[in-house]
Computed example of a mutant assay.
Amino acid sequence: MNKIEQFLSHISLELGYSALTVDAYRRDLHQWADYATGGSLETLVPEDVTFSDLRLWVAHLAGSGSSPRTIKRKVSALRAFYRYLLRQGDISVNPASRLVLPKPSKTLPVNVRPEETSAILDADIPHDDFAAVRDRLILDILYSTGMRCSELIGLRDADVDTVKGELKVL
């Protein structure tokens, strides 16, 4: 079993990572190994990898159009792999520890104009259509209380007092 497979087995069996996480690490590490070895994964010698090799791969990813978020995820897999090798005593220096990554750009929230909000909240809805009434209630609650979507999703029947007209938001 090669070092990557040993690492994947370790994070799956000993650390209890989810199958989806292990699969993502597998894809990212195999992609790195394919790049580093020219497509022959079995010839990868992780001990011989240098910081410069990793920087070249990050530059290759950036040049091929990978988003900063994707690059960050792939480098996280590499960092975890090399930390594992360091703890196992397979390497003496972690070449991935010094990698500096660009921060992913943050998207600005989209605001709804007041006239659009009024048009949505003032529109007539058929009262015999459950989905339409439910959706209007959701919009009314979000707009009038300012609560977050996650707070509304977490709302339980016990948190609603229809007599007092109150919601308990956690």
Rank of each mutant, 00 (worst) to 15 (best):
L15G: 01
G16R: 11
Y17V: 09
Y17H: 13
A19S: 15
L20H: 15
V22W: 08
R26L: 08
R27V: 15
R27L: 15
D28V: 07
D28Y: 10
D28L: 12
L29P: 03
W32K: 05
W32R: 01
A33P: 01
A36W: 04
T37H: 03
T37A: 00
G39I: 05
G39L: 02
S40M: 01
S40D: 14
L41G: 02
L41S: 08
L41Q: 12
E42C: 00
T43W: 03
L44T: 08
V45L: 06
P46I: 12
D48L: 08
V49M: 14
T50A: 09
F51G: 07
F51T: 14
S52G: 04
L54V: 13
L56C: 01
W57G: 00
V58W: 00
H60K: 03
L61D: 02
G65A: 04
G65H: 03
S66V: 01
S66I: 00
S67N: 00
S67E: 03
P68I: 04
R69Q: 01
T70N: 09
K72Y: 01
S76V: 11
S76A: 15
A77F: 05
L78P: 00
R79V: 01
R79Y: 02
F81C: 09
F81G: 06
F81P: 07
F81N: 07
R83N: 13
Y84T: 09
L85W: 06
L85S: 03
L86Y: 05
L86Q: 06
R87S: 03
R87C: 05
Q88D: 13
G89D: 07
I91L: 04
S92R: 11
S92I: 09
V93C: 03
N94V: 08
P95M: 00
P95I: 00
S97K: 12
S97Q: 15
V100K: 10
L101R: 04
P102T: 07
P104M: 12
P104S: 06
S105G: 05
K106L: 03
K106N: 03
T107N: 04
L108K: 04
P109L: 12
P109D: 07
P109C: 06
V110T: 10
V112H: 02
V112S: 02
P114F: 03
P114K: 05
E115L: 06
E115M: 04
E116Y: 08
T117I: 11
S118D: 15
I120L: 14
L121A: 05
D122Q: 13
D124R: 08
D124F: 04
I125E: 10
I125N: 10
H127G: 12
D128K: 13
D129K: 12
D129N: 15
F130E: 10
A131Y: 11
A132W: 07
V133I: 14
R134A: 10
L137W: 10
I138R: 03
L139V: 08
I141R: 08
I141T: 11
L142T: 12
L142K: 07
S144N: 14
T145Y: 13
G146W: 15
G146S: 14
C149M: 15
C149F: 13
C149S: 15
E151Q: 14
G154I: 06
G154E: 08
R156S: 09
D157W: 12
A158C: 13
